[in-house]
């Protein structure tokens, strides 16, 4: 579904500052993968590069989405092909009501606006519909607003940047459950005709979101490339027990040969 080959990426405004190097990643149709890694390892850069944000420039390699090379496509084209992203710190847009953006998203899919109220209610976001987008939203409110937008946008492949950061335990349950719905990985699919073929790539620093969503595979990122891949729970155990510094010392990490991955 998403195939990244030999990707090398630099910061557009700081040429020669290479963030991702020789990065390979393959996510089969309908799978959700999780990306672990310490701060500064390039996880967010990877997500934003996949979405096509101009802060990063691809120097080498390619990104294929459902067989199509999207490496040089605009953000809008990628969104229209079915990619969606949840941002960690989305910008404020004063005067633009969340409701207006929600209407745009359902209109784009030729759905009715009834969906907006239904999902907003589930996310306890109804009173936020009349608010200016992201303005004075708390951390948890930002997360729910991003989820609301993605549920209405209904992308085929979803990029989630730390969906649980800055969220208290109570809100985490709601966010976890709705993320599940979004990714189509919930064992109890409620009212939506959500597509089982949906895929995703989730960044998590703490791993808490994994208590709520099913992920098929995990990858650990360090210094701009994927060092090892495997069963998410196993990887998470290793990271929790050893910490990232030790993890990075692991022999699997020094090699870029992904055939050495644990399963």
């Amino acid at each position: 579904m998403l195939k990244i080959e030999n990707l090398k990426v630099e910061v557009t405004d700081e040429p020669d500052k290479v963030i991702l190097d020789d990065l390979n990643l393959n996510i089969p149709e309908g799978e959700v993968h999780v990306l672990f890694g310490p701060n500064g390892s390039g996880k967010s850069t990877l997500l934003q590069t996949i979405m096509g944000f101009p802060a990063y420039r691809v120097l080498e390699g390619s990104i294929l989405f459902r067989g199509e090379d999207i490496t040089n496509k605009s953000i809008t084209e990628r969104a229209k092909l079915g990619l969606g992203i949840s941002m960690q710190r989305p910008p404020n847009i004063p005067g633009l009501k969340l409701q207006k953006l929600a209407e745009f998203l359902v209109n784009q899919r030729r759905e009715t606006t009834a969906e907006i109220g239904y999902i907003a209610k589930k996310l306890e976001m109804r009173e936020f519909l009349s608010r200016d987008l992201n303005v004075h939203f708390s951390g948890g409110e930002i997360k729910r607003s991003e989820l609301l937008q993605l549920l209405l946008q209904a992308p085929k492949f979803i990029l989630l940047d730390e969906p649980e950061s800055g969220v208290d335990i109570q809100a985490l349950k709601l966010i976890g459950e709705m993320t599940n719905v979004l990714l189509g990985t919930s064992p109890r699919q409620p009212t939506y005709p959500w597509d089982k073929s949906r895929g995703g790539l989730v960044i998590t620093h703490t791993g808490h979101i994994l208590d709520y969503i099913h992920v098929d595979r995990g990858h650990v990122m360090c210094h701009g490339h994927i060092g090892c891949s495997g069963t998410p729970s196993r990887l998470l155990d290793d990271i929790r027990n050893l910490g990232y510094p030790e993890c990075a010392k692991c022999h699997r990490f020094t090699s870029k040969d992904l055939s050495l991955k644990i399963t």
């Binding site: 979405m51 944000f53 101009p54 605009s74 953000i75 809008t76 990628r78 969104a79 229209k80 990619l83 969606g84 992203i85 941002m87 989305p90 910008p91 847009i93 004063p94 005067g95 633009l96 009501k97 207006k100 953006l101 745009f104 998203l105 784009q108 200016d132 987008l133 937008q149 946008q153």
Partner: peptide, 26 residues
């Protein structure tokens, strides 16, 4: 803001639609 444009474009708006939404909001 370029970040405002990118954000709305990632939701499927064209650059023109995103500009329009931001200006109208303003």
């Amino acid at each position: 803001g370029e970040d405002q444009l990118n954000y709305l474009m990632a939701r499927g708006m064209t650059e023109e639609e995103a500009t329009d939404a931001i200006v109208r909001g303003f």
